[in-house]
Design a protein around this nucleic acid. Structure first.
Lengths: 199, 199
DNA sequence: CAAACATAATTGGTCAACCAATCAAGAAAA
DNA sequence: TTTTCTTGATTGGTTGACCAATTATGTTTG
């Protein structure tokens, strides 16, 4: 009645993974269905069996990239209770994505460019950032309650920290001579802790 | 001996402008020579008369976007002598690009995605950012000498401030419900002045 | 001054390559 | 056998690039 049970999600993942690898390798403007099919080791036809069209594949790819990035960040800061150390871990996790998980970061940045002309992609991204701001906001709130940080709006602090991390990641990526990951980490921590310092 | 002298730069500019408007309107992945030609009100053939290929047009377009952005920022902070006010003006200039000169900002972000796979574009961008870091660095140095700011590495401060501005511009662009330009300006100034504050 | 000339600028059409999407037909699992 | 999966060839359409022919604009010369 239902042959090859459970193959659908496997195939979908296979296709999305191949898409991400293609994007990382050749960029958005050189992405073709043929390349994706070859990299996923399936026929062209099957792409349209599992996805309505190219755009649907891109939406799924962006979803996976965002998901992966979020998991990476959440996981890195988990298990640490001291807000200062937790923030430090989170900053390091975010920044090291740009250098160590370059593939993912490249695709992430590429999506920013496309988002501007694609409501569906824009919303996926906006949701991620709202969650991230809140996540960071909660860490900061804890620090305020513990008397470590000055009183500050959690969402605002989240926005600032996220902005700083994104901006430094960008410079780290496309201008590698400017400063190293270690330096960027130090700068970032210093700026953030001064921002959060009590007087 | 040389008919229509001086028309070449005019045409080139015409073509590059049309390219930028196309990018702002439809995005990188939908950019075609035909669209550019139509928007520039010239024939398709002439594009290849003035530029070797599509890539050459894109390089010229990126150069113009970067140039324009830099001019805008430099101009805004000129004539102000107090380092604090100057920094404030610069921050506002950068952030308002994302909202008021949305077209330019959109194209700017689109180029980030393509840069990753294009050495020529990457270098144009790296040069701009080096100059911007130094520009900001000089303002900060002045503030240090005047005793307004704590002692800090100029290039590092430039990197931090630029990162914060870029990151906030991004959130401002693709998540307009998060905060307004005015709020972003305040957050940014607060964070930076706390970062530069003595003790 | 004007006719002949030289070269730059511009056009519109052509073309091979490539693209996303479709489909008929068959393979594989239940 | 029936249903789901999978293939690979095909389709109609688009793309960037190229080019021969034409036009516009100066220069030179008689």
């Amino acid at each position: 009645m239902s042959p090859k049970v459970g193959i659908a999600p496997v195939r979908r993942r296979q296709i999305v993974d191949a898409t991400i690898r293609c994007l990382a390798r050749d960029g958005y403007s050189h992405l073709t269905m043929n390349k994706v099919a070859r990299r996923a080791r399936v026929s062209q036809g099957i792409l349209h069996y599992y996805f309505a069209d190219k755009h649907a594949i891109l939406v799924a790819a962006m979803q996976r990239v965002m998901e992966d990035l979020e998991r990476r960040v959440v996981q890195e800061a988990r298990g640490i209770h001291d807000p200062r150390r937790r923030l430090r871990a989170l900053i390091h996790a975010c920044l090291s994505v740009a250098t160590e998980a370059r593939e993912f970061w490249v695709v992430f940045v590429e999506f920013w460019g496309e988002m501007m002309h694609d409501r569906a992609l824009m919303e996926i991204n906006a949701d991620l950032y709202t969650r991230e701001r809140r996540l960071i906001g909660r860490i900061v709130t804890r620090g305020v309650r513990s008397g470590l940080f000055r009183r500050v709006r959690p969402e605002q602090a989240g926005g600032i920290i996220l902005a700083l991390v994104d901006g430094l990641s960008l410079q780290l990526t496309f201008d590698s001579k400017a400063f190293s990951l270690a330096e960027a980490s130090r700068f970032c921590e210093e700026a953030i802790f001064r921002y959060l310092a009590k007087k």
